[in-house]
Amino acid sequence: MTTQSVLALYTNADYAAEAGEALDNAGFAKEDYDFLTDTPYPEGAFGERHSSHRLYVFPFVGALIGLTTAILLTAGTQISYPLVTGGKPILSIPPMAIITYEGTMLGAILFTIIGIIFESRLPSAKKRIYDDRITEGYIGVVVDCEEDQVNTVEQILTQAGAHEVRREEA
């Protein structure tokens, strides 16, 4: 049995939120449907949808790797060529701090970018259902369901006040 994507367009965010509630009541899991918008709505606007992400882990890991590498680089070179300059200690913290700071930042930035790509599941060659009217302010509710559920889904979405409902093979 093939999986279908059903997309309903709403002119009003309230009706889209009601469609989400109706899908919940009909036993659809939160992961089976999603809201498509042209601007970020505040969290919880369409009903609470808790989904975990690991984006914050990436900068921390990157920063740690960058910091460690920079400390090894600066301390390693200083200890390998121990020349006392101006009575300063071999491992002088102020200049080391600059390099460790740069290393930490570079690691954090690169890993954040990697994290964004990872969390967004890029690259994705698969073309997903969409309607260009969402760019004009319509709210889309997209439901991934089995073929035998399509009629039920379309009925729920229409009853919630959909302006238009269409389907596509997922």
Binding site: F35, L36, E43, H53, L55, S120
Partner: peptide
Amino acid sequence: AGFWRGTDAQWRWHRLGLTALGAFYFML
């Protein structure tokens, strides 16, 4: 940017990414 559809999850990582990179930009 064709992958972008404006789902909840996409807006969430978009916001978090902007926050993180913005903070790093300031620090740098």
